[in-house]
Design a protein around this nucleic acid. Sequence first.
DNA 1: AACTGTCCCTGCAAGC
DNA 2: TGCTTGCAGGGACAGT
Length: 283
Amino acid sequence: MPELPEVETVRRGLQDRVVGRLVEHVEVGRDRTVRRTSADEVVRGLTGARFVAAERRGKYLICPLDTGRAVMVHLRMSGQLLLAPAGARRPPHAHVVVHLAPSAERAADELWFVDPRTFGEVVVFDPTRPDELVPELGRLGVDPVADGLDRATLRRLVLGRRRRMKALLLDQHVIAGIGNIYSDEILHRARLRPDRISSTLHGREITRLHSAVHEVLTLAIESGGSTLRDAQYVDLLGASGSFQDLHRVYDRAGQRCSSCQRGTIVRESVAGRTTYLCPRCQR
DNA sequence: AACTGTCCCTGCAAGC
DNA sequence: TGCTTGCAGGGACAGT
């Protein structure tokens, strides 16, 4: 599932390959993907526009256009953005196809929004009035990578609430970008139980949590994200990530804990999500 | 305030 | 082996 590191990897691909390019025309094959407005709005909003930047807030991709509007893409569960040469054979579920004009450096390409489970969205909106179409952008919490997240801020966010740590990390209104995989990896590295109540953390535990957030997200971005068997996350050019090889708990039930070397990773449900942890070293 | 459950949708896997 | 059923998951939302 795309979380901050995967979305950031896609963003970097867009920055390298799509920013600066002109949209010739757009096809929308599935209305559900553009449900927040309409196929017409997305086609009209993108056609003839040039991408001027590729930004990210939490799991949201935002690309400002030279028309003054911007396109927001959320991959949700199974969304992918893929760049392919014009005319390439499309995979199933390519719900939006953006045709990019050839430029001095590049031949004509197509940008595909592929999404089997159709939870993902594409919206063209006015970035000076985000509340009109994408009000959730204004409610996002701090992005640990784009904004930075220092220890004092994290301490305030954690101690100011009485919530299970897993629920807190997953709450996009508190910290933006962490999902089910990275919350488990972060809590394991921080040696904190997912059901630990946030307001009970001690100073040293806050320090460990702070380090773990940055270590996990930084390493995951450097690894190009996590590609799992089912979700098949790949970057803009179709390359898999490799952070799954560095997962210490996620999808490793029954395995020996690589940190303490003594516990066994278990799978349970916390905050309504499948959760992996080492009951021995997470306290 | 924080929790649980529901919905959306599809592909995969477990179970018969 | 072949079918059916259930589950997973991000995020909004309703209800407790």
